[in-house]
Amino acid sequence: MSNNSMILSSRRAFLGATGKTLSATALAMVVGSNIKTADAADASQDIQILNAAIALEHEGIAAYQIAATSGLLDPAVVDIGVTFQGHHKGHRDILVKAVETLGGKPAEEKSLGAYAKDLKASTLKNQADVLRLALDLERGAANAYLGLIPSLGPDYHQVAAQMAGDEAFHAAILANALGQPIPKAALMFG
């Protein structure tokens, strides 16, 4: 073996080793980027679902605003409505923060007039009508949260369940105010 070929073969060995190192690094990069894209996909999926929840809370806040200013409610009922509205604002704030933390843009609210139209507020004629609308929305919201938990990332399961709990509490008070009987069967929501 000549000197030259010695150099060549050791060079080849060196290149080979580097090649292996490189491919290992490349592999790590590929795997890493795959993990990253999976994370990013999960985050953007969570953002979408959380934004739908924000839209739900925006609508709830608007519904209580429309109710409180309708002139159809007793002052004591207005107080309860405003307290419930405060809970919905609390939910909205938590959800907005979650979407921002994930790097998303929180869903914006529509105008009060748009909500009034979407909820057919012009058909409300008395306090019982208003309470029934509120009950439908709260019951729907409790069910909505419970049904979307399995699609959300685990980080948001508990907070979504807490929100469902608040909506179920609201629904119970409203059903009671309307004189509705207590449901006999277990698992009333979800």
Binding site: A52, A55, D118, D136, R139, N143
Partner: peptide
Amino acid sequence: YKRRCGGCHSLDNNRIG
């Protein structure tokens, strides 16, 4: 429909869905 979907959907108005 009213109970399960009515939190987000109506027949004739766009809401959350």
